Computed example of a mutant assay.
Amino acid sequence: MTYGKLLLSCVSGGESLRLWLLDQRWFSGYLLPALPRQVRWFLRKLYLAPLDLVEQLAHGRKTSSPKRASNFSGAVTGVVHTYEGSGDALLGRLVESAGLTPNSRVLDIGCGFGRLGAATGTYLNANGCYEGLDIVKDCTTWCGENVKSPHGNVKFRHADIYNREYNPSGMVKAKDYHFPFADHSFDVVVLISVFTHMNYEDTANYMREISRILRPGGVCYASYYFLTPVSLAAMKLPKSTFNFRYSFGSYFTASRQTPEFAIAFNETLIRELYQACGLAPEFRPGQWYQGKVGSQDYMIGRKV
């Protein structure tokens, strides 16, 4: 084995260990929620920064991929964990389930480090466009410098919204935020691991705004942790990753001290919210409660 391959195998092993830990109930369900936010984020960087260094020594880092220690965006499936791979997988899901076409106007709320923006950059034609919105300024700054498209129709903007987990210094409350887009501006609105970190009041405001900016027939594609008879029963088993044991009335959380760490809703509550906002809901269950933390539930809402 060459020196470069040996280094890369170390990176692969370290990444595999991290992903295995995230699927363990004692780790994601009990240890992480119990740690203060600052400690969790420090330990994450402490673990991932050496992997970034080793990978850079092996073959140099591509500027199109953010460093692991900075990129908090998860995978969209239980098997795809690379930046490029997860972006392509999400693009494929949107084509299949949300009717995304090269002409579509796409809004990616909670875009992170722009994995979907990178994937759509070569997929969309000159008539389509992609807008990425995130509350973490480092994300949108990096995306603006590194994620490009042939037609110049991939853009990013920062929204300084307060979130105890991801932007504790934010100036605007999510329940009061007005999306800076005109009515009926988009064909597809995407939210991956956004409502899993927002309470119900904030979620309800976002959904009203999403309904406003979606064109008739447009689709909202969003992930959640839903509490259903199936997931509630599964959470009692050792194989389940999360345990949403703290109730705050309209939502449940795995962490009492930082509720935004991971939030779950009753599926019927969100279904009713979609209907009240003029969206026809379609529920697609995931497998997060079966020890696959990256496999969230989805609610697909079509503007009627």
Rank of each mutant, 00 (worst) to 15 (best):
residue 263 I to Y: 01
residue 134 D to I: 00
residue 184 H to Y: 05
residue 282 E to H: 14
residue 273 L to D: 06
residue 119 A to R: 11
residue 91 L to T: 05
residue 6 L to P: 07
residue 284 R to Q: 13
residue 94 L to C: 05
residue 228 T to D: 06
residue 133 L to D: 11
residue 260 E to W: 01
residue 72 F to M: 09
residue 267 E to Q: 12
residue 194 V to H: 02
residue 16 S to G: 15
residue 8 L to H: 03
residue 230 V to Q: 04
residue 103 N to Q: 15
residue 279 L to I: 14
residue 290 Q to S: 02
residue 147 V to H: 10
residue 204 A to P: 07
residue 95 V to H: 07
residue 109 I to L: 12
residue 207 M to L: 14
residue 27 F to W: 06
residue 189 V to H: 04
residue 64 S to T: 12
residue 276 A to M: 14
residue 247 S to E: 01
residue 14 G to Q: 04
residue 304 V to A: 13
residue 267 E to P: 04
residue 264 A to M: 05
residue 206 Y to M: 14
residue 210 I to W: 03
residue 178 H to Y: 15
residue 178 H to I: 15
residue 129 C to R: 14
residue 13 G to N: 05
residue 128 G to L: 14
residue 43 L to T: 03
residue 3 Y to C: 14
residue 87 G to K: 05
residue 18 R to P: 12
residue 97 S to V: 02
residue 35 L to D: 01
residue 54 V to T: 03
residue 200 Y to H: 08
residue 135 I to H: 05
residue 116 L to M: 11
residue 82 T to W: 06
residue 289 Y to C: 09
residue 258 T to S: 00
residue 42 F to E: 02
residue 298 Y to H: 11
residue 64 S to Y: 05
residue 135 I to P: 08
residue 301 G to K: 10
residue 287 Q to V: 06
residue 51 L to N: 00
residue 205 N to L: 06
residue 51 L to I: 02
residue 281 P to R: 06
residue 91 L to I: 05
residue 189 V to Q: 01
residue 103 N to D: 15
residue 168 P to V: 05
residue 165 E to R: 04
residue 192 I to Q: 12
residue 76 V to P: 02
residue 236 K to I: 01
residue 171 M to N: 09
residue 301 G to M: 06
residue 218 G to Q: 01
residue 261 F to L: 01
residue 8 L to R: 07
residue 92 G to T: 13
residue 298 Y to M: 09
residue 74 G to N: 07
residue 116 L to S: 11
residue 75 A to Y: 10
residue 116 L to C: 08
residue 202 D to C: 01
residue 259 P to E: 00
residue 237 L to I: 10
residue 63 T to W: 09
residue 47 Y to Q: 07
